[in-house]
Write a protein that binds this DNA or RNA. Structure first.
Lengths: 251, 251
DNA sequence: CAGTGGTCTAGACCACCGA
DNA sequence: CGGTGGTCTAGACCACTGC
């Protein structure tokens, strides 16, 4: 709680606003600001910079919805305890179900530690590294919607083995029980034919086309989650808006 | 060419920077700035505002890549004659082919004026409105890749009826011959089974899963393009990166 | 070299929100 | 009412580019 000395920043390599942004990120990460985030005037005073510099430092944090910013309102850190901005085709599909007023639940078919050299390679782990494996059938209003396979490194995800995934979200459990937050990643979307087992689990007649989403989720820039999801395409579609202004936005 | 009087702006309803942004947009649209775009200092002088206000007005234009902005370089309008920032699943698929070093061409199967009440409704036109219809098989290295159906309002797209679409891109022709620029829109992505005709045209054995993309392109906020594309999913996939910072980015 | 955009300052007025 | 963010000004210094 320095009062008259300015907050000291990292090495003098980048612009001032970038160093302030980085400092604020680490302070947020460290859990400071749990009860309210400072306003622009306060930050300008604390860092002994102009308000424009503070605003530049806050620009990205606000774009990412990491901190709230509304005129008049008390600013807050929104990522602490609240879901981070959800992105991705999977989230989009499942969210569309809920926005249609349909209930959602899962049937866990497998939840155990396994080894799989191919998946281990995708996660950049030794081929015999133990992996937490979760296989679920996802239902919308008790109707099969998707078949979901998730692999995570067993190391660090032990608490998940005792979780009932019938109604809870994987990412929320990962965050709360393991302190791990998926920050980004890559998805590949294809269409495939359902095999016999998949058709049976999803309740579709063969032949049937499924939407296949393969996702690699990153934590701190390293692969942490490998996921394969097969979605019934007769009932669920991906919708996106695109524009020069906003790029590609899944809905 | 006012020199000592400031440039007059529209009604005094929004922030100054927003009115300057709108003014710059219309000036760009009108074809001013063909030989160089003014710098920030010049714009500040012309509008008699501070440079920060000019920078705020330019922020979106730069994000959209409508004008270039690099330190030291002469600023330019980039949308004039250059492709606008391409977005969308379709573009992503076709771009991945070219980045893999494969050649691309199309076989035009149909190019004519048609009527189709369903499509007309999607384009918000009277049900018997004439429509320019283009149907192509798209090839990568002479191998069938996708089946592409496009409908446009016939009114305003007459010049397209004499174009050879074997090697040219629809959007470029639309821009150059009809002065129309697709600024955004919506896509829906599903998986479907190929019917007999599609399987034959695409050279796949039935049953086969295809990726089906339905796109509505907007011009000035109104539907202008209705497109249905069926892509061989055994050879082509959609890939996207996602992150809190950048959202969902097709590759 | 002159011109560019990037960064930064030290003020200011205002609309809006919540207590 | 006090505090918030949104807007705006009139300067300044600098790194970089292209001539």
């Amino acid at each position: 709680m320095q009062r008259s000395t300015p907050r000291s920043l990292g090495p003098d390599d980048g612009p001032l606003w970038a160093r302030i942004e980085a400092d604020l990120r680490s302070r947020i990460e460290a859990g400071e600001f749990r009860s309210g985030f400072p306003g622009e005037h306060a930050l300008a005073a604390e860092y002994e910079v102009s308000r424009q510099t503070v605003r530049q430092a806050l620009r990205r944090l606000r774009e990412e919805r990491l901190v709230s910013a509304e005129r008049g309102r008390t600013p807050r850190v929104t990522a602490d305890g609240v879901l981070e901005q959800p992105v991705g085709a999977l989230y989009s599909l499942f969210a569309s179900v809920e926005s249609a007023g349909r209930s959602q639940r899962s049937i866990t078919r497998v939840l155990e530690v396994r080894r799989d050299p191919m998946v281990a390679a995708a996660l950049q782990l030794p081929s015999q590294a133990p992996l937490t494996y979760l296989e679920r059938v996802r239902l919308a209003d008790d109707e099969p919607m998707a078949l979901d396979h998730v692999w995570l490194p067993a190391e660090g995800t032990e608490p998940l083995l005792h979780v009932d995934f019938g109604h809870t979200a994987l990412y929320a459990e990962l965050r709360q029980r393991c302190g791990v937050r998926i920050s980004g990643g890559r998805e590949q979307i294809r269409s495939v034919l359902a095999d016999h087992a998949q058709a049976e689990l999803l309740g579709v007649a063969q032949p049937a086309a499924l939407t296949y989403i393969e996702r690699t989720g990153l934590v701190a820039g390293r692969p942490f989650e490998h996921r394969r999801t097969f979605v019934r395409s007769d009932r669920f579609a991906l919708t996106a808006d695109f524009s020069a202004r906003d790029g590609y936005q899944l809905r």
